[in-house]
Design a protein around this nucleic acid. Sequence first.
DNA 1: CAAGAATCGGTAAATTCTACCATATTGAAG
DNA 2: CTTCAATATGGTAGAATTTACCGATTCTTG
Lengths: 159, 159
Amino acid sequence: MPEKLTEQDRRLLDALQENCRLSNQELAERAGMSTSACWRRVRALEEAGLVRRYSALLDIEKSGLGFQAIVHVTLTRHDHRHVDTFIAEIRRRSEVLDCYSTTGEADYHLRVVCRDLAAYNRFLEDFLFRLPGIANVRTNLVLKDIKQHSAVPVQTGPG
Amino acid sequence: MPEKLTEQDRRLLDALQENCRLSNQELAERAGMSTSACWRRVRALEEAGLVRRYSALLDIEKSGLGFQAIVHVTLTRHDHRHVDTFIAEIRRRSEVLDCYSTTGEADYHLRVVCRDLAAYNRFLEDFLFRLPGIANVRTNLVLKDIKQHSAVPVQTGPG
DNA sequence: CAAGAATCGGTAAATTCTACCATATTGAAG
DNA sequence: CTTCAATATGGTAGAATTTACCGATTCTTG
């Protein structure tokens, strides 16, 4: 369990975020450490939960998902039962890639992908609109992915 | 270059999204194919650009980023020069993890992570507010990550 | 300084990757 | 239907990698 992340940790995490299928040898080389130390360190970072998982990031359009939207959802003021079912149902639906609870006008920001507009319409009518306690839904179509980095700028200082 | 994705492709991509460090053997087993065929297929999916990259997904808080916000940005109507610099600068800044151009009230939806509120304030004052052509910026603090799946529900049908 | 704990780099066995093979399957043309 | 070419298939062996363990070194702590 790394209390503080070292500069080497940061380099390891940067490299693994860029390409997590690097061999341990190449990883060690980039981070400037021996293969043994590198292997141990990576394990420690995994077990500390710093690395949530290793994932293949797909091209969303080539995967057959032509439709993408940012959806702002507001719930009726705030019955806990409704909040819990909302969260549980959102987590269950594979079309919802991300969901954040936020301050501001909307309670939740979702990112939803579907095959096409028709599929999104079904998502709304058959699923989202039918959840209990939904007060307002506002859809913003995604015109273009400007940036999808998903690589976190790891902080190394007093952590 | 897969014209249509097969059911096996879909299973491969699902498995790789869940854990891209599975051994080729285990991958082949899950997708119900021989190791040779599996290895070739994965290569093909990579070369077709369906797999953008393999990445370690980090725990954002454990990485030292305690502050997260969804930021809505509107540009003054729409000078192309301003749009281009805006996009280029946004791509340069590591605090901006995602950025989508959207329909609706705001032109762009950003997700920004920083060490703390002070760092975010610097991001705004020293960077975002100084970009040319910014008409409006609205910040929504992220209270809680409800879901960060980042695994795309791959479509296998007529693609 | 001395004792204990933690970390280091190196090593070897087990596993895995990767390129190649001969065979089987597919698709088109005669 | 048959033939031929093109493609896909499963198996295999050498190369590379992973992974657990070793003694040696460094770092704490009293």
